[in-house]
Nucleic acid binder design. Structure first.
Lengths: 208, 208
DNA sequence: GTCTATATAGGGATAGAC
DNA sequence: GTCTATCCCTATATAGAC
Protein backbone atom coordinates (compact mmCIF):
# COMPACT_ATOMS: atom_id res chain seq x y z
CA UNK A 1 0.00 0.00 0.00
CA UNK A 2 2.98 2.30 0.17
CA UNK A 3 4.74 1.20 -2.98
CA UNK A 4 2.95 3.35 -5.58
CA UNK A 5 3.84 6.95 -6.24
CA UNK A 6 0.77 8.76 -7.56
CA UNK A 7 -1.20 6.28 -9.64
CA UNK A 8 -3.80 3.89 -8.26
CA UNK A 9 -7.15 4.45 -6.69
CA UNK A 10 -7.19 8.22 -6.67
CA UNK A 11 -8.29 7.70 -10.23
CA UNK A 12 -11.57 6.71 -8.63
CA UNK A 13 -11.69 9.99 -6.81
CA UNK A 14 -11.02 11.89 -10.02
CA UNK A 15 -13.79 10.04 -11.78
CA UNK A 16 -16.22 10.92 -9.05
CA UNK A 17 -15.14 14.56 -9.04
CA UNK A 18 -15.52 14.75 -12.80
CA UNK A 19 -19.03 13.31 -12.68
CA UNK A 20 -20.03 15.78 -9.98
CA UNK A 21 -18.71 18.77 -11.91
CA UNK A 22 -20.18 17.50 -15.15
CA UNK A 23 -23.58 17.23 -13.50
CA UNK A 24 -23.50 20.93 -12.65
CA UNK A 25 -22.31 22.08 -16.04
CA UNK A 26 -24.59 19.86 -18.13
CA UNK A 27 -27.52 20.94 -15.96
CA UNK A 28 -26.76 24.64 -16.49
CA UNK A 29 -25.72 24.63 -20.11
CA UNK A 30 -27.02 21.43 -21.66
CA UNK A 31 -25.00 18.96 -23.68
CA UNK A 32 -24.24 21.20 -26.62
CA UNK A 33 -23.49 24.25 -24.51
CA UNK A 34 -21.01 22.45 -22.30
CA UNK A 35 -17.26 22.33 -22.92
CA UNK A 36 -15.02 19.64 -21.56
CA UNK A 37 -12.42 22.23 -20.60
CA UNK A 38 -14.93 23.92 -18.31
CA UNK A 39 -15.57 20.68 -16.46
CA UNK A 40 -11.89 19.79 -16.40
CA UNK A 41 -10.85 23.11 -14.94
CA UNK A 42 -13.47 22.80 -12.21
CA UNK A 43 -11.77 19.68 -10.97
CA UNK A 44 -8.29 21.13 -11.41
CA UNK A 45 -7.45 19.09 -14.44
CA UNK A 46 -6.73 19.63 -18.11
CA UNK A 47 -9.14 18.66 -20.84
CA UNK A 48 -7.03 15.73 -22.15
CA UNK A 49 -6.67 14.62 -18.55
CA UNK A 50 -10.43 14.38 -18.31
CA UNK A 51 -10.63 12.38 -21.52
CA UNK A 52 -8.52 9.71 -19.86
CA UNK A 53 -11.55 8.87 -17.71
CA UNK A 54 -14.31 9.42 -20.27
CA UNK A 55 -13.07 8.94 -23.77
CA UNK A 56 -15.66 11.18 -25.43
CA UNK A 57 -18.02 13.96 -24.43
CA UNK A 58 -20.99 11.72 -25.09
CA UNK A 59 -19.47 9.04 -22.89
CA UNK A 60 -19.31 11.56 -20.06
CA UNK A 61 -22.90 12.61 -20.60
CA UNK A 62 -24.07 9.02 -20.40
CA UNK A 63 -22.01 8.61 -17.26
CA UNK A 64 -23.78 11.57 -15.67
CA UNK A 65 -27.21 10.30 -16.64
CA UNK A 66 -26.44 6.81 -15.35
CA UNK A 67 -25.15 8.28 -12.10
CA UNK A 68 -28.29 10.38 -11.86
CA UNK A 69 -30.52 7.35 -12.27
CA UNK A 70 -28.75 5.47 -9.52
CA UNK A 71 -28.24 8.19 -6.98
CA UNK A 72 -31.06 10.64 -7.52
CA UNK A 73 -34.03 11.06 -5.24
CA UNK A 74 -36.77 8.82 -6.60
CA UNK A 75 -39.62 10.34 -8.58
CA UNK A 76 -43.03 11.23 -7.18
CA UNK A 77 -44.51 7.89 -8.16
CA UNK A 78 -42.02 6.02 -6.00
CA UNK A 79 -43.24 8.04 -3.03
CA UNK A 80 -46.75 6.70 -3.46
CA UNK A 81 -48.47 3.90 -1.62
CA UNK A 82 -51.39 2.76 -3.81
CA UNK A 83 -53.38 1.59 -0.82
CA UNK A 84 -53.52 5.11 0.57
CA UNK A 85 -52.48 7.36 -2.33
CA UNK A 86 -51.60 10.37 -0.26
CA UNK A 87 -50.63 12.39 -3.28
CA UNK A 88 -50.23 15.61 -1.39
CA UNK A 89 -47.87 14.17 1.18
CA UNK A 90 -45.88 12.38 -1.50
CA UNK A 91 -45.43 15.53 -3.54
CA UNK A 92 -44.49 17.61 -0.55
CA UNK A 93 -41.90 15.08 0.54
CA UNK A 94 -40.47 14.89 -2.94
CA UNK A 95 -40.41 18.68 -3.30
CA UNK A 96 -38.57 19.05 -0.02
CA UNK A 97 -35.88 16.71 -1.20
CA UNK A 98 -35.41 18.72 -4.38
CA UNK A 99 -35.73 22.27 -3.17
CA UNK A 100 -32.38 22.20 -1.46
CA UNK A 101 -30.62 20.46 -4.34
CA UNK A 102 -32.27 21.75 -7.48
CA UNK A 103 -29.42 20.66 -9.75
CA UNK A 104 -30.92 17.23 -10.44
CA UNK A 105 -34.20 18.79 -11.49
CA UNK A 106 -32.39 21.39 -13.56
CA UNK A 107 -30.55 18.58 -15.34
CA UNK A 108 -33.83 16.90 -16.27
CA UNK A 109 -35.41 20.14 -17.44
CA UNK A 110 -32.43 21.16 -19.52
CA UNK A 111 -31.69 17.81 -21.11
CA UNK A 112 -35.26 16.68 -21.76
CA UNK A 113 -35.98 19.82 -23.77
CA UNK A 114 -32.66 19.64 -25.59
CA UNK A 115 -33.34 15.97 -26.39
CA UNK A 116 -36.52 16.58 -28.38
CA UNK A 117 -34.77 16.35 -31.79
CA UNK A 118 -34.01 12.76 -32.87
CA UNK A 119 -30.28 13.30 -33.29
CA UNK A 120 -29.71 14.22 -29.66
CA UNK A 121 -27.71 11.55 -27.81
CA UNK A 122 -30.42 11.34 -25.15
CA UNK A 123 -33.45 11.39 -27.42
CA UNK A 124 -34.25 7.70 -27.12
CA UNK A 125 -33.48 7.75 -23.44
CA UNK A 126 -36.06 10.44 -22.69
CA UNK A 127 -38.70 8.95 -24.96
CA UNK A 128 -38.39 5.70 -23.02
CA UNK A 129 -38.12 7.51 -19.71
CA UNK A 130 -41.50 9.18 -20.18
CA UNK A 131 -43.16 6.07 -21.54
CA UNK A 132 -41.99 4.16 -18.51
CA UNK A 133 -42.92 6.93 -16.11
CA UNK A 134 -46.44 7.13 -17.51
CA UNK A 135 -46.77 3.35 -17.36
CA UNK A 136 -45.60 3.12 -13.75
CA UNK A 137 -47.72 6.03 -12.59
CA UNK A 138 -50.81 4.64 -14.29
CA UNK A 139 -50.15 1.27 -12.65
CA UNK A 140 -50.03 2.92 -9.25
CA UNK A 141 -53.33 4.66 -9.91
CA UNK A 142 -54.87 1.45 -11.17
CA UNK A 143 -53.88 -0.33 -8.00
CA UNK A 144 -55.37 2.50 -5.96
CA UNK A 145 -58.50 2.14 -8.01
CA UNK A 146 -58.73 -1.57 -7.29
CA UNK A 147 -58.14 -0.85 -3.62
CA UNK A 148 -61.14 1.44 -3.75
CA UNK A 149 -59.08 4.51 -2.91
CA UNK A 150 -60.00 6.40 -6.06
CA UNK A 151 -63.13 6.37 -8.17
CA UNK A 152 -63.66 3.55 -10.64
CA UNK A 153 -64.48 5.77 -13.60
CA UNK A 154 -61.13 7.60 -13.58
CA UNK A 155 -59.03 7.25 -16.75
CA UNK A 156 -55.78 6.36 -15.04
CA UNK A 157 -53.59 6.66 -18.13
CA UNK A 158 -54.83 10.14 -18.79
CA UNK A 159 -54.46 11.23 -15.18
CA UNK A 160 -50.95 9.77 -14.95
CA UNK A 161 -49.89 11.67 -18.06
CA UNK A 162 -51.43 14.82 -16.65
CA UNK A 163 -49.76 14.60 -13.25
CA UNK A 164 -46.34 14.03 -14.79
CA UNK A 165 -46.90 16.96 -17.11
CA UNK A 166 -47.94 19.25 -14.30
CA UNK A 167 -44.92 18.32 -12.19
CA UNK A 168 -42.64 19.13 -15.13
CA UNK A 169 -44.40 22.38 -15.90
CA UNK A 170 -44.36 23.59 -12.32
CA UNK A 171 -40.71 22.61 -12.11
CA UNK A 172 -39.92 24.88 -15.04
CA UNK A 173 -41.82 27.83 -13.55
CA UNK A 174 -40.07 27.24 -10.24
CA UNK A 175 -36.57 27.03 -11.75
CA UNK A 176 -37.15 30.18 -13.78
CA UNK A 177 -38.60 32.20 -10.95
CA UNK A 178 -38.07 30.56 -7.55
CA UNK A 179 -39.05 33.77 -5.75
CA UNK A 180 -42.52 33.76 -7.28
CA UNK A 181 -43.13 30.04 -7.58
CA UNK A 182 -42.67 27.83 -4.56
CA UNK A 183 -42.36 24.27 -5.75
CA UNK A 184 -43.58 22.63 -2.59
CA UNK A 185 -46.70 24.69 -2.08
CA UNK A 186 -47.53 24.72 -5.78
CA UNK A 187 -47.38 20.94 -5.88
CA UNK A 188 -49.24 20.69 -2.62
CA UNK A 189 -52.13 22.80 -3.84
CA UNK A 190 -52.26 20.92 -7.09
CA UNK A 191 -52.21 17.56 -5.33
CA UNK A 192 -55.07 18.60 -3.06
CA UNK A 193 -57.24 19.34 -6.05
CA UNK A 194 -56.34 16.11 -7.80
CA UNK A 195 -56.97 14.05 -4.69
CA UNK A 196 -60.36 15.64 -4.20
CA UNK A 197 -61.20 15.01 -7.83
CA UNK A 198 -60.08 11.39 -7.81
CA UNK A 199 -61.84 10.45 -4.59
CA UNK A 200 -65.01 12.50 -4.53
CA UNK A 201 -67.83 9.98 -5.00
CA UNK A 202 -70.27 12.74 -5.99
CA UNK A 203 -68.45 13.89 -9.08
CA UNK A 204 -69.41 12.71 -12.51
CA UNK A 205 -66.99 13.10 -15.38
CA UNK A 206 -68.89 14.95 -18.07
CA UNK A 207 -67.64 14.20 -21.55
CA UNK A 208 -70.27 16.58 -22.85
CA UNK B 1 -38.61 51.20 -60.29
CA UNK B 2 -36.27 50.03 -63.02
CA UNK B 3 -33.25 52.10 -62.17
CA UNK B 4 -31.64 49.97 -59.44
CA UNK B 5 -29.55 46.92 -60.18
CA UNK B 6 -29.75 44.56 -57.22
CA UNK B 7 -30.04 46.65 -54.09
CA UNK B 8 -33.30 47.94 -52.60
CA UNK B 9 -36.28 46.18 -51.19
CA UNK B 10 -35.23 42.61 -51.71
CA UNK B 11 -33.32 43.23 -48.51
CA UNK B 12 -36.75 42.99 -46.91
CA UNK B 13 -37.24 39.60 -48.46
CA UNK B 14 -33.85 38.44 -47.21
CA UNK B 15 -34.67 39.60 -43.72
CA UNK B 16 -37.90 37.67 -43.72
CA UNK B 17 -36.22 34.55 -45.08
CA UNK B 18 -33.50 34.77 -42.44
CA UNK B 19 -36.07 35.08 -39.65
CA UNK B 20 -37.98 32.08 -40.95
CA UNK B 21 -34.87 29.91 -41.17
CA UNK B 22 -33.62 31.11 -37.80
CA UNK B 23 -36.93 30.15 -36.22
CA UNK B 24 -36.46 26.56 -37.36
CA UNK B 25 -32.85 26.28 -36.29
CA UNK B 26 -33.22 27.99 -32.92
CA UNK B 27 -36.25 25.80 -32.22
CA UNK B 28 -34.33 22.62 -32.98
CA UNK B 29 -30.96 23.41 -31.48
CA UNK B 30 -31.48 26.27 -29.04
CA UNK B 31 -29.49 29.49 -28.96
CA UNK B 32 -26.15 27.98 -27.99
CA UNK B 33 -26.43 25.03 -30.32
CA UNK B 34 -27.21 27.17 -33.35
CA UNK B 35 -24.62 28.47 -35.80
CA UNK B 36 -25.14 31.49 -37.99
CA UNK B 37 -23.63 29.67 -40.95
CA UNK B 38 -26.33 27.03 -40.74
CA UNK B 39 -29.04 29.66 -40.93
CA UNK B 40 -27.23 31.58 -43.65
CA UNK B 41 -26.77 28.53 -45.86
CA UNK B 42 -30.46 27.69 -45.55
CA UNK B 43 -31.33 30.98 -47.17
CA UNK B 44 -28.53 30.68 -49.75
CA UNK B 45 -26.33 33.28 -48.18
CA UNK B 46 -22.96 33.48 -46.47
CA UNK B 47 -22.58 34.06 -42.76
CA UNK B 48 -21.19 37.61 -43.11
CA UNK B 49 -24.04 38.30 -45.50
CA UNK B 50 -26.48 37.36 -42.77
CA UNK B 51 -24.75 39.66 -40.30
CA UNK B 52 -25.55 42.57 -42.55
CA UNK B 53 -29.19 42.18 -41.49
CA UNK B 54 -28.68 41.20 -37.86
CA UNK B 55 -25.45 42.50 -36.49
CA UNK B 56 -25.02 39.83 -33.80
CA UNK B 57 -26.34 36.37 -33.06
CA UNK B 58 -28.21 37.71 -30.06
CA UNK B 59 -29.78 40.40 -32.21
CA UNK B 60 -31.11 37.67 -34.50
CA UNK B 61 -32.47 35.68 -31.57
CA UNK B 62 -34.36 38.72 -30.31
CA UNK B 63 -35.67 39.28 -33.80
CA UNK B 64 -37.04 35.75 -33.90
CA UNK B 65 -38.67 36.07 -30.49
CA UNK B 66 -40.21 39.42 -31.38
CA UNK B 67 -41.50 37.97 -34.64
CA UNK B 68 -42.91 35.02 -32.72
CA UNK B 69 -44.77 37.28 -30.33
CA UNK B 70 -46.40 39.20 -33.15
CA UNK B 71 -47.22 36.42 -35.55
CA UNK B 72 -47.73 33.36 -33.43
CA UNK B 73 -51.04 31.75 -32.69
CA UNK B 74 -52.32 33.25 -29.43
CA UNK B 75 -51.97 31.24 -26.22
CA UNK B 76 -54.75 29.21 -24.62
CA UNK B 77 -55.84 32.07 -22.41
CA UNK B 78 -56.60 34.26 -25.42
CA UNK B 79 -58.97 31.58 -26.67
CA UNK B 80 -61.09 31.86 -23.55
CA UNK B 81 -64.29 33.74 -23.01
CA UNK B 82 -64.66 34.28 -19.24
CA UNK B 83 -68.43 34.39 -19.47
CA UNK B 84 -68.54 30.82 -20.72
CA UNK B 85 -65.09 29.41 -19.99
CA UNK B 86 -65.22 26.54 -22.38
CA UNK B 87 -61.80 25.32 -21.50
CA UNK B 88 -62.06 22.13 -23.46
CA UNK B 89 -63.07 23.83 -26.68
CA UNK B 90 -60.40 26.47 -26.23
CA UNK B 91 -57.66 23.92 -25.72
CA UNK B 92 -58.77 21.80 -28.63
CA UNK B 93 -58.85 24.80 -30.91
CA UNK B 94 -55.43 25.89 -29.75
CA UNK B 95 -54.00 22.38 -30.13
CA UNK B 96 -55.32 22.09 -33.67
CA UNK B 97 -53.55 25.28 -34.61
CA UNK B 98 -50.28 23.97 -33.24
CA UNK B 99 -50.33 20.34 -34.28
CA UNK B 100 -49.71 21.14 -37.88
CA UNK B 101 -47.01 23.71 -37.17
CA UNK B 102 -45.21 22.48 -34.09
CA UNK B 103 -42.16 24.66 -34.67
CA UNK B 104 -43.49 27.54 -32.60
CA UNK B 105 -44.13 25.25 -29.65
CA UNK B 106 -40.76 23.61 -30.10
CA UNK B 107 -39.17 27.05 -29.97
CA UNK B 108 -40.85 27.81 -26.65
CA UNK B 109 -39.93 24.45 -25.16
CA UNK B 110 -36.31 24.65 -26.26
CA UNK B 111 -35.66 28.26 -25.35
CA UNK B 112 -37.56 28.38 -22.05
CA UNK B 113 -35.53 25.48 -20.66
CA UNK B 114 -32.28 26.88 -22.01
CA UNK B 115 -33.13 30.26 -20.47
CA UNK B 116 -33.29 29.04 -16.88
CA UNK B 117 -29.76 30.24 -15.99
CA UNK B 118 -29.55 34.01 -15.38
CA UNK B 119 -26.91 34.64 -18.02
CA UNK B 120 -29.05 33.45 -20.89
CA UNK B 121 -30.08 36.29 -23.20
CA UNK B 122 -33.74 35.33 -22.82
CA UNK B 123 -33.76 34.70 -19.08
CA UNK B 124 -35.53 37.92 -18.13
CA UNK B 125 -37.86 37.58 -21.06
CA UNK B 126 -39.14 34.18 -19.96
CA UNK B 127 -39.39 35.13 -16.30
CA UNK B 128 -41.63 38.02 -17.31
CA UNK B 129 -43.46 35.93 -19.87
CA UNK B 130 -44.57 33.42 -17.25
CA UNK B 131 -45.44 36.08 -14.68
CA UNK B 132 -47.60 37.80 -17.21
CA UNK B 133 -49.15 34.57 -18.46
CA UNK B 134 -50.09 33.54 -14.90
CA UNK B 135 -51.52 37.00 -14.23
CA UNK B 136 -53.63 37.05 -17.36
CA UNK B 137 -54.89 33.52 -16.90
CA UNK B 138 -55.81 34.17 -13.29
CA UNK B 139 -57.66 37.30 -14.34
CA UNK B 140 -59.69 35.30 -16.82
CA UNK B 141 -60.59 32.77 -14.16
CA UNK B 142 -61.48 35.54 -11.73
CA UNK B 143 -63.82 37.05 -14.25
CA UNK B 144 -65.41 33.66 -14.81
CA UNK B 145 -65.77 33.38 -11.09
CA UNK B 146 -67.55 36.72 -10.84
CA UNK B 147 -69.78 35.70 -13.71
CA UNK B 148 -70.74 32.65 -11.67
CA UNK B 149 -69.30 30.25 -14.22
CA UNK B 150 -66.87 28.64 -11.79
CA UNK B 151 -67.09 28.03 -8.07
CA UNK B 152 -66.36 30.88 -5.69
CA UNK B 153 -63.92 28.96 -3.50
CA UNK B 154 -61.46 28.23 -6.31
CA UNK B 155 -57.94 29.61 -5.87
CA UNK B 156 -57.62 31.18 -9.29
CA UNK B 157 -53.91 31.98 -9.02
CA UNK B 158 -53.09 28.40 -8.16
CA UNK B 159 -55.31 26.97 -10.88
CA UNK B 160 -53.87 29.36 -13.48
CA UNK B 161 -50.34 28.30 -12.58
CA UNK B 162 -51.37 24.66 -12.76
CA UNK B 163 -53.06 24.88 -16.14
CA UNK B 164 -50.08 26.65 -17.69
CA UNK B 165 -47.77 24.04 -16.19
CA UNK B 166 -49.85 21.17 -17.53
CA UNK B 167 -49.96 22.64 -21.01
CA UNK B 168 -46.18 22.96 -21.00
CA UNK B 169 -45.65 19.48 -19.63
CA UNK B 170 -47.99 17.84 -22.10
CA UNK B 171 -46.32 19.80 -24.87
CA UNK B 172 -42.97 18.30 -23.93
CA UNK B 173 -44.35 14.76 -23.85
CA UNK B 174 -46.01 15.35 -27.20
CA UNK B 175 -42.90 16.79 -28.86
CA UNK B 176 -40.76 13.92 -27.58
CA UNK B 177 -43.18 11.19 -28.55
CA UNK B 178 -45.91 12.42 -30.88
CA UNK B 179 -46.93 8.86 -31.73
CA UNK B 180 -47.77 8.05 -28.14
CA UNK B 181 -48.99 11.44 -26.95
CA UNK B 182 -51.69 13.22 -28.91
CA UNK B 183 -51.62 16.87 -27.89
CA UNK B 184 -55.21 17.61 -28.74
CA UNK B 185 -56.81 14.68 -26.98
CA UNK B 186 -54.47 14.92 -23.98
CA UNK B 187 -55.42 18.56 -23.52
CA UNK B 188 -59.05 17.80 -24.14
CA UNK B 189 -59.19 15.11 -21.47
CA UNK B 190 -57.35 17.32 -19.04
CA UNK B 191 -59.63 20.26 -19.73
CA UNK B 192 -62.71 18.13 -19.14
CA UNK B 193 -61.49 17.21 -15.69
CA UNK B 194 -60.58 20.78 -14.83
CA UNK B 195 -63.91 22.10 -16.02
CA UNK B 196 -65.77 19.54 -13.98
CA UNK B 197 -63.72 20.39 -10.95
CA UNK B 198 -64.14 24.14 -11.31
CA UNK B 199 -67.86 24.06 -11.89
CA UNK B 200 -69.15 21.16 -9.81
CA UNK B 201 -71.17 22.74 -6.99
CA UNK B 202 -70.98 19.55 -4.93
CA UNK B 203 -67.24 19.49 -4.50
CA UNK B 204 -65.55 20.79 -1.40
CA UNK B 205 -61.83 21.52 -1.45
CA UNK B 206 -60.37 19.55 1.42
CA UNK B 207 -57.23 21.12 2.84
CA UNK B 208 -57.10 18.28 5.29
C1' DG C 1 -26.83 43.87 -50.22
C1' DT C 2 -23.73 40.40 -50.56
C1' DC C 3 -19.32 38.56 -51.21
C1' DT C 4 -14.18 36.97 -49.98
C1' DA C 5 -10.68 37.14 -46.79
C1' DT C 6 -9.28 37.24 -42.33
C1' DA C 7 -8.83 37.92 -37.27
C1' DT C 8 -9.48 35.61 -33.12
C1' DA C 9 -11.28 32.37 -30.13
C1' DG C 10 -12.79 28.02 -28.75
C1' DG C 11 -14.30 23.37 -29.41
C1' DG C 12 -13.12 17.87 -29.24
C1' DA C 13 -9.81 14.55 -29.78
C1' DT C 14 -4.98 12.27 -30.37
C1' DA C 15 0.20 11.51 -29.56
C1' DG C 16 3.53 11.01 -26.62
C1' DA C 17 6.36 12.52 -22.49
C1' DC C 18 6.63 11.98 -17.51
C1' DG D 1 -3.06 9.24 -14.21
C1' DT D 2 -2.08 13.49 -15.85
C1' DC D 3 0.42 16.71 -18.52
C1' DT D 4 1.99 19.51 -22.92
C1' DA D 5 1.73 20.02 -27.62
C1' DT D 6 -0.80 19.78 -31.49
C1' DC D 7 -4.28 18.74 -35.22
C1' DC D 8 -8.29 20.08 -37.25
C1' DC D 9 -12.54 21.95 -37.26
C1' DT D 10 -16.05 25.40 -36.28
C1' DA D 11 -17.62 29.54 -34.23
C1' DT D 12 -18.58 34.91 -34.26
C1' DA D 13 -17.29 39.07 -35.95
C1' DT D 14 -14.79 42.65 -38.84
C1' DA D 15 -12.61 44.83 -43.14
C1' DG D 16 -13.03 45.91 -47.45
C1' DA D 17 -14.04 44.77 -52.49
C1' DC D 18 -17.85 44.65 -55.84
Amino acid sequence: MAAEKKTRANGRASRRAILAAALDVFAERGYRGTSLSEIASRVGMTQPGLLHHFSTKEDLLLGVVREHEERTTPDVNSHLDPTHLELREAMEAWASLNEREPVQQLLLTTLSAEAVPDEHPLHEYFVEHYRDYRRRFAATLRRAQKAGVIRADVDVASVAREIIATIDGLRLQWLLDPKKVNLKSALSEYASRVEAELTDPQRELSTR
